[in-house]
Amino acid sequence: MLEVNITKKLRTFTLDVDFKADNNALALLGQSGSGKSMTLKCIAGVEKPDSGKIILDGEILYDSTQGICLPPQKRRIGLLFQNYALFPMMTVLQNIMSGCKQIPRKAHALELIKRFGLEGFENVYPNKLSGGEQQRAALARMLAANPRLLLFDEPFSALDTHLRRQLSQMVADVLEDYDGSAIVVSHDCAEAFRLCEQIAIMEKGKITVNKDRVSLFKAPETVSAAKLIGCENILPVRTGEKNITISNLAIVIDNIKPDGITAIGLPATAIHVDNNGEYTFNANIIKIIKSPYDTTLVINMDYSKYDIFCSLPKGERIPKIYSNETFSFDKKDIFFLKDGN
């Protein structure tokens, strides 16, 4: 169990995070520069917060009111870096042995080498390894130190798609075997969903959403959450007494409590080219984007500044470009979102 409640003044904003993580993996999701990496560094102890508390399994790692700040060496927290941070003048085996606590160190390190498929690379230096191999070596090195908490800082962002999938599977296995807490920092929502039960969204140094992954994907509550889970259409709304108006589509949605709602999210897959849904509108197709799995229509009503994306499954009839069609969607597919940006 990890409890974090810290503040730290950064150059453009103030980091102010407050969360708890149980033994399930937690994803910290957010755009680059939102303070995710700094949060991890503060937890690991390589950066010092300005004030607050960090408690891991009942042990105080940092407490500004009591003047406690354990050095990173005493925290036993594993941190995996985006650029792997393998020691360049040590071989793979030496790298893995460097933090190894269990005696005999070499036998333990060799075991990890085997587990991560690095046999044959024992005496190779990191600059001769591929990105994927470096990542596996870094994973092995982190686990060798027998950490109580695992932190992953954008673990796959430097890898290409194929490797990314393989390694993400490897990390998923590691997380499954591991019985401490883990935090994965990412800006990719699919990755976060694959690896973590719990997803927290960070914006400008603050955690704005923290919920389990299923409900986050089913019903994001804020604009940024909707953006991060990949919701294509986010439209501003005007609110009335018991209804809201989507001005751009000239659609009024009745029987709804408008408290705090500033926008709606509409996934591209929720819009259909027919008039069978509860709400319908007419729009011009201004672009057709084909991909191997589906087709995306870019549509616009009367040259408004919001283009709307509508996704058709493979095999469905594709309307002609520049034609005017009727589109529809249902109330159950709408996300009602708070806060403006």
């Binding site: 560094k41 690991a44 102890g45 390589v46 050095p71 990173p72 060496q73 925290r75 036993r76 927290i77 594993g78 941190l79 870096f81 650029n83 941070a85 393998l86 020691f87 360049p88 003048m89 460097s98 933090g99 606590k101 090195r141 982190m142 130190a145 950490p147």
Partner: peptide, 25 residues
């Protein structure tokens, strides 16, 4: 690369060891 320092610290290596065996080389 500061991350090498951080990696050493989180692996429990002493600052003296990190300086002479990682930073200096």
């Amino acid at each position: 690369d500061k991350n090498l320092l951080y990696a050493g610290q989180t692996l429990g290596l002493s600052n003296t060891y990190i300086f002479w065996k990682i930073i200096m080389p």
